[in-house]
Write a protein that binds this DNA or RNA. Structure first.
Lengths: 189, 189
DNA sequence: CCGCTCATGTAACTGGTTACATGATTTA
DNA sequence: TAAATCATGTAACCAGTTACATGAGCGG
């Protein structure tokens, strides 16, 4: 009986079921698709096998419902599942939980030196616009699911602050690049 | 000849080779392992096949070197590779490049309601400590590779600002939770 | 009745992971 | 010379992806 460690997605879904109450795989998918986070595609091929796995391991209970001719399978968190959820959330906090977050924008920025100065400035403008767009999305999501509980509000606030910080950063990048002589920001033929 | 889209890791490695100049798979791995980012494990099983792939597709040139009895394979970015790198960096910016960044701390925070009030406060403290630790790591990395070029400095600054923002957030969480009556932040047996 | 969305899945693939293998070089 | 670590890989596995299949219900 090896102590199987659950993946982030597994734990996240477990949490969702706990939060939404008894629900189907489809409910989970719908919820994930609508959230502005893009970490997971929430594809059927990921979610359906996943809940089956969690069920087999006893973290979720499963019940077939029937309304009309249509059947659906509804899952709920078991006491074991709740324990696992709490263990994942922490404390103690898993060390991989606190890291420099991965940011594809930053990854790309690393190699801005490969572009011409004009392209660099264009890149900054585009990035700025894209971040505005993300912010808009977060806000609209926030308004839709607005009068939520305290914790949900705090979590949304995190997304907001995240985008805000990155906008501040991109503005700084723009400022620095515009001021710098072209030679210092260029490399590679 | 289907237009194969390259993965984030592939493009990132391509960028690294461009940045480091001709280097071996091992050099790439070493560089990635030392950076404070944890997105990729930089495992041999990922990097070696990856550079072979990039070589086969003509983005990297490959040359066997021999010093003493020991051989090593050195890769360099080809003109085709540089083109691909520029296309990845943008502009135009790929739309998946600007998103709400994935943050495992936020994922967990979503389900803080599953904990007791004491655990919640403990969680916040731990998270705060962990973020301090991350900040420390970023700073030490920054000092080691300190007198870098403008762009590297800006990129590092991004990591710094990211952590800063999340610390601000976690403090806000702590403040709100301490002020709130216990009943409003609890759910689930 | 046709087409659309809802809803539940399965199949094939793939990129990245862990773990292992192997030999060279350095250090105690 | 034995142990550690450098350096280059391969093999097996696995979680999550895209794409497909199937059928129910519903709006026009």
């Amino acid at each position: 009986m090896a102590k199987k460690r659950y993946s982030e997605l597994e734990c996240f879904v477990l949490g969702l079921v706990w939060q939404l109450g008894p629900c189907s795989a489809y409910d989970i998918r719908r919820h994930m698709t609508r959230s502005p986070s893009t970490q997971w595609s929430a594809s059927a091929g990921a979610i359906y096998p996943l809940v089956q796995r969690l069920h087999k391991r006893g973290l979720l209970s499963s019940k077939a419902e029937r309304n009309g001719k249509r059947g659906r399978r509804v899952y709920a968190v078991t006491p074991t599942g709740l324990k696992a959820l709490r263990a994942w959330v922490g404390p103690p906090l898993a060390e991989e939980a606190a890291t420099v977050a991965y940011d594809p924008l930053r990854s790309r920025a690393r190699f801005l030196g490969a572009l011409t100065r004009e392209q660099q400035l264009e890149w900054v403008e585009e990035a700025r616009r894209a971040l505005d767009e993300v912010e808009r999305k977060v806000r609209s999501w926030q308004e839709t699911y607005g009068e939520a509980d305290l914790i949900t509000t705090l979590v949304t606030r995190n997304g907001e602050m995240d985008v805000e910080a990155r906008k501040k950063w991109i503005d700084e990048v723009g400022r620095v690049l515009r001021e710098a002589p072209a030679a210092t920001v260029r490399r590679g033929s």
